[in-house]
Amino acid sequence: MSGKVVDTLAKATPPRLARKFKGLSDRAIAWIFVAPTIFLLLAINIFPLIWTIRLSFTNFRVNRVNADVKWVGLRNYERILSDPDIWQTMQATAHFLFWTLFFQVLIGFALAYLINKKFKGNDLWTTIIVFPMMLSPAVVGNFWTFLYQPQIGLFNYVVSFFSGVDPSSFSMIGSVDLAPWAIVIVDTWMWTPFVMLICLAGLRSIPDSIYEAAECDRASKWRQFWTITIPMVLPFLMLAVLFRGIENFKMFDLVVQLTGGGPGSITELTSINLKREAFEKWRTGYASAYAVILFVTIFGLASIYVKALNKVKER
């Protein structure tokens, strides 16, 4: 900011306000402006985090406030990490996370690549494609349970039409083998448009001149795709993976509506399991330890990923 502008702004400051701040250093004024935000962050992020860590070493239950709270040390952590059921929910989450990201990136990028080509009705198709992500997950969960119904569900009829299998002979959300894929399909249907939009932004940010230069160098379309398109879209793609990864790690509503975590516990993701421990069983201390473990896992993975993302950007 030029000195002239600063002078103008200084003159515009009301005299009463100016008198108040007279004598305060720039650093002090900066602190005054930043303090409310820091206070809010401490109050709604840092304090609950510290409180959760503290609770994780106790047997506290929020529904029994009159009961004695015992310090149990690392017992909650030991129980969680040695519980095979919790490892099964981690496995279910990993399966869900991996395959949803895989399909969403693959299909999302393919759709973005197609939509990026100039053709008639391009805007209309874009609107139609992004429609699923505008819906509420609860609504999506509900109507997909109908689509998956073996007797009346459209999904089973479509599969039957192409494969000849009796539609009522299989149940997507009732079978141990199919249920994990049932939730992957719905999440992919709903969130692929989000990945597509981010990829589209990446594709549209590539200057035409680079392709023109490549054409002059007689680079094939295939070569252009691998040496220009992919590297330049990669930071966008990685960002989409980060967003979807974080979202899907804490996936709750959609899966609860679809399967309730079943059959058995085959689709019980960590967030569903954690919610049951914290707000149905009311094991607050135990659930706090569980939340801390999940926080450390997500934070660790996200940090490594962001570093990788920054490296890709620097290239």
Binding site: V176, G262, P263, S265, I266, R276, K281, W282
Partner: peptide, 19 residues
Amino acid sequence: ASLLLAMQKRVHNFVIAGK
């Protein structure tokens, strides 16, 4: 609630999931 959720899980695992 803890007793109920444990039963839901164990029974569903056997009856529906066949585990």
